[in-house]
Amino acid sequence: MTYVAFSSSLRVLMLASALALPGSVAVAAAPQAPAVGARALQPASPDRARLPLARLFTPLRLEGAILKWGAPQVGTPARVTYAFASGPVNRPEARNCRQMQDFDTLADASGEAPAAVRAEAVAAFRMWGEASGLVFEEAASEEAANILLGAQAMPRGYAFTNVDFARQDGSGLIEAGGSDGRGLSLPVASETGEGKTAPVAAWVASITRSAICLNPRHDWKIGFDGNLAAYDLRYTFAHEIGHAIGLDHHLQGPSIMHFKYSEIFQGLQAADISGVQWLYGPPAR
């Protein structure tokens, strides 16, 4: 099988504060969404699933494929492992996170203990797992991990994600207006020349490996304090994990997958939950 690395340098898969984007519009304040719980985790109804995709969430699409872990079928659960880099990592074929160093290097930038920084990453994984059919567990080794987290060896930007996936063999075709096997219409759409959305066919491809790397020279912190020059680690990890599991930037309303860092909310929002549940189904009861 052929693997293709996702380039966030093309799609800008990074968090950026309003201060870092002169002339951009800051995220408008909105009431905080309820914490992840029973009500927030209810799967979307069939009627809601028929809404244009842009109003719900934005899946990561590369080469016409929608990406997810596990079986190449939306709405199916998956088990994903992760590990923290303990030394130099070199992946020359990747577009992002080609060279990483010890994950604990990030502790120096935050002034926190290495164990505390790791705990924030684990909490971010838990956030996505509690909202969906994803099960995360720490791998026995870095080589066996599906998702590897580390610090950038060549610092730039803020945070990046690299995603490798298996090219399609034709078994995961989603037909426009079709069903995902659970009786739900698939909200697959694309932008037309008139700025409107139109249904399209799309492939579902299995993610094979992801890497998340943060800039150790950036200012990191644990918790919100109103200082947007320093990014909260849990929020940042949650955003990058969203990319690593198949979600793209979402600009329609509040979302942890918005490309701008904010301190308006700390947990997953309605768009994030809709997206992860569309890909992996609701959490097991």
Results as ranks from 00 to 15, higher is better:
H258M: 07
P114V: 08
P187E: 14
L13Q: 09
V25G: 09
G275A: 06
I66Q: 11
A115Y: 11
A29S: 15
A38E: 13
K68V: 00
G172H: 12
Q42Y: 04
A94M: 12
D164E: 15
T2M: 08
I147M: 02
S190R: 14
D248W: 13
A271Y: 03
R55W: 10
G75L: 01
P282E: 03
Q269E: 14
E263Q: 15
L134S: 06
A49F: 01
R234L: 07
F165D: 03
I174E: 13
P34Q: 07
L21R: 15
G183S: 12
L149R: 00
P43D: 00
S262R: 13
V36D: 10
V12K: 12
L173Q: 08
R50P: 00
T76C: 01
R182D: 10
A244C: 05
A139M: 12
L15E: 01
A144F: 11
A109F: 13
N90S: 14
F165Y: 15
A176H: 11
M154K: 15
Y231R: 06
S185K: 11
N215I: 11
G75S: 04
T76M: 05
Q266W: 01
I212T: 06
V80L: 05
E120Y: 00
A230Y: 02
V200L: 14
A113T: 14
Y261A: 14
S24L: 11
P199K: 06
V36E: 06
C213L: 03
R95I: 08
A107C: 14
Q42W: 01
F103D: 02
P283D: 06
S171G: 08
E120Q: 11
S8I: 02
S179R: 00
G170V: 13
E263D: 08
V4T: 14
M14L: 10
S86H: 12
R118F: 00
G129D: 12
E194L: 11
R156P: 10
A244W: 00
E143W: 08
L51N: 07
G281W: 03
P59N: 12
